[in-house]
């Protein structure tokens, strides 16, 4: 079946982006020169863009696009003794360029923030409602990606899909709001975005009903106590990690007034499970690895019938201790299979 798409020179696409900027903030993975962790390395993360040339599409971003709808630091309200006030949100709508795994990841975030329990998360919702996806076609796997195993590689949930090539873009425009923009400038071509069919990394996720409780105390988590340094890079780069803490910040000159804000947290990071009374659960780093793993492929799945992890592989990309989450899932699967055999 033919699928009508448009092909544009970058310069023409930039004109359209300029047009869109009147109504939208446009976010894409972008290069922050020499802002990487090590000197003379770049940081690739999401930021607002003005032109297609700024979009980094040949590499995977270090951080996911989740910060656009789930900001790292977010003021919830300002308070005085009598009242509180919720800050306004920018009027502009939002366009995000992102890959299939991340679109699938945002669906997980939607579930957590909007369908988990009685209340929708007001702050998440008011940003999320503004977002339209431009899917970056992802044909070839990067290092550490395992989206195919996690069903994160495919989606048709996008307003526009884009194939980048040097100097030009090819688009599949599904959203009626946008179609008019391209009719005049784009050359009509037959275009259906392609998807990754195979990653270098493959994982076998154990079935939810095969997960016995004993796995909690299994040996296999122990090695992570020695290896993990609890830096939290895996959490903050993950598209689906969605934990946060709230902070009440009193103003210095008038401590009765202040603001409440929420900031990202992560299950690997010290302090995450600190409770009143000074107890700290999961002090052993290995149990944090266990918590994360089972959360991503067990607890969540039991409730929502899909894995939380979409296989973007950023946790593996960024772990300074070379702890591979995909390897951990495979290890878990192997352990479970062996135990099953033993029982037979």
């Amino acid at each position: 079946m033919k699928n009508m798409g448009f092909q544009l020179q970058n310069s023409d696409f930039n004109k359209i982006l300029n047009e869109l900027k009147k109504e939208y903030k446009i976010y894409a993975p972008k290069r922050f020169e020499k802002r990487g962790t090590f000197s003379d390395t770049d940081m690739i993360r999401y930021g607002e863009i003005d032109s297609v040339e700024e979009i980094v599409w040949k590499e995977k971003s270090e951080y996911s696009p989740k910060e656009i709808i789930f900001p790292i630091t977010q003021t919830l309200f300002y308070f005085t003794e009598e009242e509180y006030k919720v800050p306004k949100v920018d009027d502009k709508k939002i366009i995000v360029f992102l890959r299939p795994c991340d679109i699938n990841g945002v669906r997980r975030l939607d579930t957590i923030f909007l369908k988990n329990g009685e209340h929708e998360d007001f702050y998440y919702k008011r940003l999320r409602e503004k977002v339209k996806f431009v899917m970056i076609e992802c044909k070839e796997s990067f290092e550490n990606c395992f989206c195919v195993s996690m069903n994160g590689n495919y989606t048709d949930n996008y307003s526009i899909a884009v194939r980048f090539e040097d100097g030009q873009v090819t688009l599949d425009v599904k959203d009626e709001d946008f179609k008019g923009l391209f009719n005049k400038v784009g050359k009509e071509v037959d275009f259906t975005p392609e998807y990754v069919k195979e990653n270098h990394v493959k994982v076998e996720v154990p079935e939810v009903d095969k997960m016995p409780l004993e796995i909690f105390n299994h040996e296999m988590w122990k090695e992570y106590s020695e290896r993990c340094i609890a830096c939290g890079r895996c959490n903050v780069s993950c598209i689906t990690c969605s934990c946060f803490t709230t902070q009440d910040i009193p103003y210095e000159d008038n401590p009765k007034a202040g603001e409440r804000r929420r900031v990202w947290a992560g299950c690997h990071i010290d302090g995450f499970t600190d409770m009143a009374g000074g107890h700290s659960f999961r002090k052993e780093y290995g149990s944090r690895m266990r918590f994360k793993t089972l959360h991503k492929i067990y607890d969540y799945k039991k409730r929502f019938e899909e894995n939380m992890c979409v296989g973007c592989g950023r946790c593996d990309d960024r772990c300074p201790e070379y702890i591979s989450f995909s390897t951990c899932i495979n290890k878990l699967n192997k352990v479970l299979k062996e135990e099953e055999k033993d029982e037979e």
Partner: peptide, 19 residues
Amino acid sequence: CGECVLKCPTGAWTRNPKK
């Protein structure tokens, strides 16, 4: 020394590109 940049998980600390 730049250690804060090395330790920061979120890139809140970065180096000024000017050396």
